[in-house]
């Protein structure tokens, strides 16, 4: 039996009747049509499916859409303001914090979580904060630089 689910994604209400087994990541990608959020390992280890649920990071491949009924979700598409990139997006661009780009949406949202809980992290804290996100291109050095850069930019705002 399908269940009605209403989720506000990046400020837009999305209502669908879904099978209970529908994962949040599939609701976001297939029903809301927002494909920035990726499915990588599908076992909650790689972090490429990371989104914000009511402002807090979560792995959308290990969350049922029904669990997020009524919640507000932020995906990579909703982080910036129109054409205005979020400082994290700006820094990942400027510091070459991506290579193939597949892990980037999850990396940026995991970085958002880190800076939410620690506005001025050390390099070690950045590496620890991003331990749930894997980059198969092994571009970690520049990702860490990007997060440091973004933390500095956000502190000046």
């Amino acid at each position: 039996m399908k269940v009605p689910v209403s989720i506000t994604i990046n400020g837009r209400v999305c209502e669908h009747e879904v099978e209970p087994r529908t994962l949040l990541v599939h609701f976001i990608r297939d029903l809301a049509g927002l494909t920035g959020t990726k499915v990588g390992c599908d076992t909650s280890q790689c972090g490429s499916c990371t989104v914000l649920i009511d402002g807090v990071s979560a792995k959308s491949c290990t969350t049922l859409a029904a669990q997020a009924d009524g919640a507000g979700i932020t995906t990579i598409e909703g982080l910036g303001d129109g054409e205005q990139l979020h400082p994290l997006q700006e820094s990942f661009w400027n510091k070459h914090g991506l290579q193939c780009g597949f892990c980037t949406p999850g990396m940026i949202l995991a970085s958002h979580e880190l800076l939410r809980t620690n506005a001025s992290p050390s390099e070690a804290e950045i590496r620890h904060g991003l331990e749930g996100n894997l980059c198969r291109c092994t571009g970690y050095e520049n990702i860490v630089r990007a997060v440091r850069d973004a933390a500095g930019a956000m502190a000046q705002e």
């Binding site: 909650s44 807090v56 979560a58 290990t62 995991a110």
Partner: peptide, 9 residues
């Protein structure tokens, strides 16, 4: 446990 996103849920 796990990582930050796992600990949040």
């Amino acid at each position: 446990i796990g990582d930050p996103a796992v600990r949040n849920r």
